[in-house]
């Protein structure tokens, strides 16, 4: 095959992008506010799942800590976009220059991504020296550490109370653009030299190391890229609901995003995106049932908590019977488009 990896795998981001655009168009055509919010939520989850995939999918190391970067990004949005007067009341400890800053939401998302990337570099430099399981647990400790700091640093994060007044962006288009940006970034990383080296290290660590792949360094690069994507997602998440609390970005969101990635398939970018779409539809259906459905004359409603139980059960069943997820480590491509798509061979689980 003489075609470059770029052209060979180009169909994947294009197809995924088209699916996302289709969702946005449906939201625009329906025009109902709750539905619009649902679609925005799906786009945010796509950003998170792709961010997770960049690290987990390529390195094979499970990270429970990436939502910490979303937390960093979310608070950057709070620090930079709330009106200075309101900031003075809820977060009096901010430095003066930050107190006066008021930037548009897209700039906040970019700054949030940068801020998260800086911290990913700092944490990653330490964590990437660990191997497999120990690294996973250490990322969990990182999540708890960030949560503990943000829940207690009263003057800068308003501790556990909600920070309100973040300008809400209700249009679906910025989220669509961000989701597509995340997909393109993930794809570009996947076909890059670094992505290839990291996947080699995932599948055959000894051989990769012997061929000159510096594994901790490659993991660190993936960690920073994924941290930046999570930071962007976190900032936009803050703008989608207008409120941040440290517990917004803790175990619940970690569980949901991770189960989306697992169900879709950790081994491929398409798996990350389609897992979000699949589980989001399931969650939406269960929410509808929890709210109560009129059957004849009686109302039928599921008790609260069923949503998470069902998610957990789906996740465990998928792991039992189809550990490579819905996509089975394959990418979405055009028929005959390529036999060599990036991320095709996944972890042997």
């Amino acid at each position: 095959m003489s075609r470059s990896p770029l052209r060979r795998s180009l169909a994947t981001p294009v197809l995924l992008g088209l699916i996302l655009v289709a969702f946005a168009l449906v939201a625009w055509a329906v025009g109902s506010k709750p539905f619009n919010q649902t679609i925005i939520d799906i786009f945010l989850k796509v950003i998170f799942a792709v961010g997770l995939w960049v690290f987990i999918g390529n390195s094979g190391v499970i990270s429970f800590g990436h939502i910490a970067f979303a937390c960093l990004g979310g608070y950057v949005a709070a620090w930079t976009t709330i009106k200075p007067m309101m900031k003075g009341i809820s977060m009096p400890g901010l430095p003066d220059w930050l107190m006066q800053t008021e930037i548009p939401y897209w700039a906040a998302a970019a700054v949030g991504a940068g801020w998260a990337a800086v911290w990913a570099l700092i944490f990653g430099a330490v964590l990437m020296r660990l191997s497999g399981i120990a690294a996973s647990i250490a990322t969990f400790a990182m999540l708890a550490m960030v949560n503990s700091i943000y829940s207690n640093w009263d003057s800068v994060t308003a501790a556990t109370s909600s920070v309100v007044g973040i300008p809400i962006v209700r249009s679906v288009w910025p989220y669509l653009i961000a989701a597509i940006l995340a997909v393109v970034l993930g794809w570009a990383y996947g076909i890059s030299r670094h992505g290839l080296a990291l996947r080699a290290a995932r599948d055959e660590p000894t051989a990769a190391a012997a061929s000159g792949v510096n594994i901790p360094r490659m993991r660190l690069i993936a960690f920073v890229v994924s941290g930046a994507i999570m930071g962007m997602g976190g900032a936009l998440y803050a703008h989608s609901i207008g409120i941040v609390t440290p517990d917004t970005f803790y175990l619940g969101l970690t569980f949901i995003t991770l189960s989306m990635l697992v169900v879709g398939g950790m081994g491929s970018l398409s798996g990350a995106v389609l897992g979000v779409l699949f589980l989001s539809s399931l969650i939406q259906g269960l929410r509808w049932l929890e709210a109560g459905v009129q059957v004849g004359t009686s109302t039928f409603a599921l008790p609260g908590g069923v949503q998470e139980i069902a998610l957990g059960a789906v996740m465990i069943l998928i792991l039992m019977f189809r550990p490579a997820g819905i996509m089975g480590n394959r990418e979405l491509t055009l028929p005959r488009a390529g036999s060599d798509t990036p991320g095709r061979s996944g972890p042997t689980n």
Binding site: G60, V61, I62, F64, G132, I133, S136, F255, L258, S259, V262, E308, I309, L311, G312, A313, M315, I316, L319, M320, P323, P347, N349
Partner: peptide, 13 residues
Amino acid sequence: ATMMIASFGLGFV
């Protein structure tokens, strides 16, 4: 890694 995620899911259940 697979078992670890499964136990994470079980914990939530």
